[in-house]
């Protein structure tokens, strides 16, 4: 029925991509996806250094998923050394 319409893939247009579906976070609450990607990006940078390309996957994900207000607040906390997560 209309299931076919919903499952059909959209026409790929240019290189417009966004955070893909992550099976670790299948439910409606995507807060952890946003926060985990942010943590993963900073941990990845800490472990592999700033020029390691695959770390940018996490950066793209958290830029797409997290409200800018949250990102600014966390980055401010990171700079001030008051960020509560384990990076």
């Amino acid at each position: 029925m209309s299931t076919a319409i919903m499952a059909a893939a959209p026409k790929a247009s240019e290189k417009h991509s966004t955070a893909p579906f992550d099976p670790r976070f299948p439910n409606q609450n995507q807060t952890k996806y946003c926060y985990q990607s942010f943590l993963d990006f900073h941990r990845c940078q800490k472990v592999k250094g700033t020029n390691y390309e695959p770390c940018n996957y996490f950066k793209r994900v958290y830029k797409s998923m997290c409200p800018n207000e949250w990102v600014d607040k966390w980055e401010g906390q990171l700079d001030a050394g008051t960020f509560a997560g384990r990076v």
């Binding site: 893909p20 099976p23 993963d40 941990r43 770390c55 994900v61």
Partner: peptide
């Protein structure tokens, strides 16, 4: 054919 797309580091 699932697997989490996040790269492992």
């Amino acid at each position: 054919k699932l697997e989490s797309p996040a790269p492992k580091y």
